[in-house]
């Protein structure tokens, strides 16, 4: 029983220690850390309506559109 315990403790430790190292190694080798700009953009699909209301209180929709249009104009100016 005791030896099962030791095998378990060290087994789990090695498994998790190794898996985190493997994860880091995999990410480095696979270029996950090579282009941070692209990584940050990856969450936004190309066709996604950025800067358009995609989540808004049901009764504030019109106001929100005006706000966004105002912001767009402001930036243009």
């Amino acid at each position: 029983m005791i030896s099962v315990y030791y095998v378990l403790v060290f087994g789990i430790m090695l498994l998790f220690g190794a898996s985190i190292v493997w994860g880091l190694w995999w990410a480095l080798r696979g270029g996950q850390f090579s282009d941070f700009q692209k990584g940050a953009q990856s969450v936004l699909d190309d066709d996604e309506p950025t800067l358009r209301p995609c989540d808004v209180f049901p009764d504030l929709r019109e106001e929100y559109r005006k706000e966004l249009a105002r912001r767009a104009n402001e930036r243009k100016a």
């Binding site: 403790v9 430790m13 998790f16 220690g17 190794a18 985190i20 190292v21 880091l24 480095l28």
Partner: peptide
């Protein structure tokens, strides 16, 4: 350099388990 980093990561992670549970 990289080997040392990996070793450090391994030890920090695994040693926490050793330190708080096993010892």
């Amino acid at each position: 350099y990289a080997t040392w980093i990996f070793l450090g990561v391994f030890l920090t992670f695994a040693a926490a388990w050793l330190g708080l549970v096993f010892f």
